[in-house]
Design a protein around this nucleic acid. Structure first.
Lengths: 343, 343
DNA sequence: AATTCGTGAGCGAACGTTCGTTCACCTCCG
DNA sequence: CGGAGGTGAACGAACGTTCGCTCACGAATT
């Protein structure tokens, strides 16, 4: 209780020097101070328990060494993987991370702009947006454009904010191609919310691949869900009911895949013998589901790191490409799809 | 590029008032200003795109409105659930959250103190520690004790830091009792790292319950793992190999349970018919595993909220109880344990 | 007509730093 | 022995706010 931080002035007084000199020794760079005084200052700082006040420092330097992270409710494992990667990459480079999580998809990302404003008022040096909900939030876009360097994982209406991500249509293509190569002809898909770009891109990949193989995509085969295991289970039930001939499912994330696997089994079918499943993400648990989940690996941790790098460059004034920086995805074959293709 | 924030002085100049008056209107409380001037100031702020600088505000108010969160690598789903809850609870009360994630358990939590120092230098108003790795880190403990109000989810060596959590021994007891009530006599357990207090508490509950039922706990039945699905799978394999008579397993978290389920099945046994499984946490996916995972629900989101409340009280100077605040746990019965007890 | 009061606004100081400049003193050199 | 040069440290200003006090002015009260 009654804790008080000691300021550099008190340290200086104790060491018998001006506070500016103490500042040079304790925090500043080029020293121009005799070893003895320096030692005296350091000793004083130590016995008083001095901790530099970065708030004051930020004020004069006009930089906080802090990055803001706008994340969608990171109960979503994928997002949380990404956030951790971002924070660790940032800290390695001397930056701290201030987070704001949006509420569920339900409230329409209403508070995205509030969070960004909060970050701006706290004068973060840059913002990383990782929230599909803001894909079409023009208010957020406008704030990011005009106030602070930013990088987004998702499309930003109006542009001018660098985007980083993965080739999502490729994700849909890889999964679908693999299922086709196993001889499947009735391939359903359990997706995230249709209005998300990720979802539409993946669907584009899925549909194009089907057409390339001479199969006509059908509405009944595409079931919208909400990224959660429960949603995935419900969607799978619906799919099998609407199109009982379905022999394969492409699921848009691993969390939903958990639910899909369980729903398929509960419907009395075997995976992969009766229904093959391929998903997206490759979360750490995917390998250990029963059966092992085949999934298109999205390099979330790497994306986080690259996002930080990109943002830091942009903070340092480098002008960054308008073209999205896309990291490659990779199909990881396990058991749920029936193993390696056999053609 | 070349973005510059406009300060309140520029707003004031444009509105033709002193900057202190502008401050009163835009950020301050009690107004004492005529409606017309107020309107003029607000208008000027709007056209200039003024955003208050909380850095400067923090400096004079000696409070940042920011909470620090020291979290263990939140790739762990449970921790990430907790962090999200903390951040949302904090923001609801006007606080932002600055996070620091420790590296894997491997590097011994070496950087825990670094993170806390970083938080302190950024002058967070309080710190929430959610990292088992720091359970016996005296340096972190000392920092928390002397510099900043804090609340921890785990024991803090030397005390004086309020602790919040769940009754962990109860967790072990509930799970074990339920398995015994199903008639199981050879009950193994797949645990987190032995050196963690959570683990030891749960083991205490497990052993005590076995003894109460006249069963002698045996070392071979307790297998240490690392909280991950992969670790859980390996541990389960080892357990079934060492004690093939095992008919039930108590797993220390849902992530490992995923691996345990898969390892049991791969060993040619059925869950729950041959081997019953009960776990801890109740993550959103637990319900949707195959079979549905019975698990002792740990109220992580609620714990996060309570942690924030407790911390805020402590920041406001309330002296808080030395006794850990423990939230109740609850056994959720699904299929992996064989359903409700039938005695 | 003299005094009090309230209202609207200005002003100085402080928060804890960093940064660039100035200053005092000593040594060395011609 | 006088000035140049170098070294160690002090000093003033600024960063963008909040907070408490002062001040001018007009209306209301005596």
């Amino acid at each position: 209780m009654a804790r008080r931080y000691v300021s550099i002035k008190e340290v200086a007084a104790r060491a018998g020097v001006s506070f500016q000199t103490a500042s040079k020794v304790l925090n500043g760079g080029s020293v121009r101070v005799s070893p003895e005084t320096a030692a005296r200052i350091v000793a004083a700082a130590k016995t008083l328990g001095y901790r530099p006040n970065t708030i004051a420092r930020s004020l004069v330097q006009r930089a906080t060494g802090t990055l803001g992270l706008l994340a969608s409710d990171a109960t979503d494992v994928a997002i949380s993987q990404f956030s951790v990667a971002v924070e660790q990459a940032a800290r390695k480079r001397g930056y701290a991370v201030l987070v704001g999580h949006l509420g569920g998809d339900a409230d329409g990302g209403q508070d995205g702009a509030d969070i960004v404003r909060m970050l701006i008022e706290r004068r973060v040096d840059g913002v990383i947006a990782a929230a599909p909900q803001v894909e079409d939030d023009t208010e957020v876009a406008e704030l990011l454009r005009t106030y602070v360097p930013a990088v987004s994982l998702h499309h930003v209406p109006g542009g001018q904010v660098p985007v980083i991500g993965s080739t999502q249509s490729e994700t849909g293509r890889l999964a679908t191609e693999h299922l086709i190569s196993h001889g499947h002809r009735v391939i359903g898909t359990v997706t995230g919310p249709f209005r998300r770009r990720v979802v539409r891109s993946r669907l584009r990949g899925y549909e194009a691949t089907l057409r390339d193989a001479g199969l006509e995509p059908h509405e009944d085969l595409m079931v919208e869900a909400d990224w959660t295991p429960g949603g995935g289970a419900a969607a799978a039930r619906l799919l099998l009911e609407r199109v009982p001939e379905t022999t394969a499912v492409f699921v848009h994330n691993d969390a939903m895949a958990i639910g899909v696997l369980s729903a398929v089994v509960k419907a009395g079918r075997r995976v992969p013998a009766d229904v093959a499943v391929v998903s997206c993400d490759d979360m750490p648990f995917a390998e250990h589901l029963t059966p092992g989940l085949s999934t298109v690996r999205v390099p979330l941790a790497e994306t986080g790191e690259r996002a930080v790098e990109l943002l830091l460059q942009s903070i340092e004034g480098a002008s960054v490409s308008a073209e999205p920086l896309l990291l490659p995805v990779e199909l990881i074959i396990r058991d749920s799809c029936g193993g390696p293709a056999d053609h």
